[in-house]
Amino acid sequence: METLKFEFPAGQSPRGRALVGGVGSGDLEVLLEPGEAGMLRLNVVTSVNGSAARWQNLFERMFREQTPPALNIEIHDFGATPGVVRLRLEQGLEELQLEGAFHD
């Protein structure tokens, strides 16, 4: 098990928070909460050791395409593949948008 920290430039802080996934085999849990404006912070706890470069690449690819909202994201990973990680992150961001629309 190891804990990894990542930071990326971000936009505005959204309203609301979201939880997706779970710490089951091959899955991960993602908690998304509003963060400091302009900054996306990710805290990853993963059961797979030596995977820092893989996470870095995955996040870079994802956030290069689109500037993410300012969030504190906590990930509890139980051996999810990069594809599953990306799906869960997108699901979390989508739920935040729905939550934001609900508040507006």
């Binding site: 098990m1 939880l19 710490v23 908690l31 706890v45 059961s47 509890h76 990973d77």
Partner: peptide
């Protein structure tokens, strides 16, 4: 709820990833 982060203090000591609501 999960955002209160009431998690198992014992699993990380044994190298096991916790879940935010302890399941």
């Amino acid at each position: 709820g999960p955002f209160e982060r009431m998690m198992s203090p014992w699993l990380p000591k044994q190298g096991i990833v916790t879940q935010a609501d302890d399941g």
